[in-house]
C-alpha cells in the first residue's frame, strides 16, 4: 500500500467512524386545530327605573340611586368596542310627551376600567345611540370579568306637563 492508498483508507475510516457516532432521526407530525368561540355580551343589573310621583316643574336626578345601574360588557374578540345609550321613544303617556331634552343620563366607568367615558355630565337622551364608553386596549379582550360602567338618570318635568304615567325604554348598544 502506497502513501496515497493509505490516505484514502484513513479518510474512509474516519468517515465511517463519524457515521457510526452520528444519530439518525425520523420525525412525524400531527396537525392540531381548534376554534375559540366569541364572547360579546352586554348585561344590566336592573331593568326598571321608577321616578315615582313627580310634580310639574320638579327635577329628579341620580336615579335609581347614587351608584346607578351597572352595565357590564364582556368581549374576547380582541377588537375595540363601544357602549352607546339611547331611548327607543321619548317619555310618553299616549299623545303626551316629556321631550328628550328633559330626560337625562349620566354615569361613570368603574375604577378598573381603562377606556374613555364620553358622558359630559347630564346628557339629554336621543333616539340615536350616543357614545357613552369606548374600551381601552386591554379591554378588547376582557373576559371573564368584563368591564363595569354605571348609569344614572334624571327627569325635569315641564311646568305645564299633563298628569299621567310616562314611560320610555332605555337601550344600551354594544358595537365593535
Amino acid at each position: 500500500m502506497n502513501s496515497k492508498q493509505l490516505w484514502i483508507v484513513t479518510l474512509l475510516g474516519l468517515f465511517l467512524v463519524g457515521m457510526a457516532s452520528a444519530a439518525t432521526q425520523q420525525q412525524s407530525y400531527v396537525q392540531v386545530m381548534l376554534s375559540v368561540k366569541s364572547t360579546f355580551e352586554l348585561s344590566v343589573d336592573r331593568n326598571i327605573v321608577d321616578f315615582k310621583s313627580m310634580n310639574p316643574g320638579e327635577v329628579k336626578m341620580d336615579m335609581p340611586d347614587n351608584e346607578g345601574i351597572k352595565v357590564n360588557v364582556k368581549s374576547n374578540n380582541g377588537r375595540p368596542w363601544y357602549l352607546k345609550i339611547s331611548d327607543q321613544f321619548e317619555l310618553s303617556n299616549g299623545e303626551d310627551v316629556i321631550p328628550n331634552n328633559d330626560f337625562l343620563w349620566s354615569g361613570y366607568a368603574s375604577k378598573a376600567a381603562t377606556g374613555v367615558w364620553h358622558g359630559k355630565g347630564d346628557d339629554s337622551f336621543s333616539l340615536t345611540p350616543a357614545l357613552a364608553y369606548a374600551a381601552g386596549v386591554n379591554e378588547y379582550n376582557n373576559i371573564p370579568n368584563g368591564t363595569d360602567t354605571y348609569f344614572k338618570f334624571g327627569v325635569k318635568v315641564p311646568v305645564k306637563q299633563n298628569s299621567g304615567i310616562y314611560r320610555s325604554i332605555i337601550a344600551f348598544t354594544l358595537t365593535e
Binding site: 392540531v32 376554534s35 375559540v36 374576547n76
Partner: peptide, 8 residues
Amino acid sequence: NQQAGNYM
C-alpha cells in the same frame, strides 16, 4: 380569558 379565533 382566551381571545376568540382559530388556533393551530
